[in-house]
Write a protein that binds this DNA or RNA. Structure first.
Lengths: 97, 97
DNA sequence: GACGCTTACGCTAGTCGTAACCATG
DNA sequence: CATGGTTACGACTAGCGTAAGCGTC
């Protein structure tokens, strides 16, 4: 069970946008990259996250639950990065990113 | 600013055990691996995390603050993994890990 | 036939271990 | 001189892009 922040980030984007292609554009990636990250996450979790109905993808029930929890993790991670940013401003030159 | 779960995990272990070598043993890694992860995390955050006093390492003030926030992230991540584990048990065979 | 997800293949970057090095007690 | 952190180097894995394939409208 090796879940990465990156996988959750890609998963969340795809879930919220309802499309791998749109998620890819939003993250400045390609569709295959998104597809593979999702697939890897699914194999790590041993869960079906998306259901392909026609030409668009929808979250499964398990996917929805994971999405909620992933949002929590993402939120804490955002707080951490914000804190890091505040700290580094006080001590040395902060390079814009 | 590309911070990974892995880096935070290694950082937390090293901080709590007060030693890179002990952290390495605890995580089934080698000392250089731990040292490099910490160093990479420091360069990503642009923060000094550890202060080497003699032959043992101690957290700086910034390090202590990061440790607290890292614990929050780790906690949410643990909840996520727990949730995943519960879900996958209900749907298919769960391989022990 | 256009759009969207998937698979195959190659490349680059990240991660780890072994070995050698340096500093401290 | 024993212990602990760092640097150098090589091997392995992961992540991404391009190209080609397949199904749906």
């Amino acid at each position: 069970m090796n879940i990465t922040i990156r996988q959750l980030q890609v998963f969340r984007t795809a879930a919220l946008l309802g499309s791998f292609t749109r998620a890819a554009k939003h993250l400045h990636l390609t569709t295959p990259a998104v597809s593979k990250q999702i697939r890897k996450l699914e194999s790590e979790c041993k869960l079906h996250l998306f259901e392909q109905s026609g030409r668009c993808v929808n979250l499964t029930q398990q996917g929805k639950r994971l999405l909620e929890q992933a949002a929590q993790v993402d939120n804490e991670m955002k707080l951490l990065k914000q804190m890091v940013r505040d700290e580094s401003v006080g001590s040395e030159v902060s390079f814009s990113e």
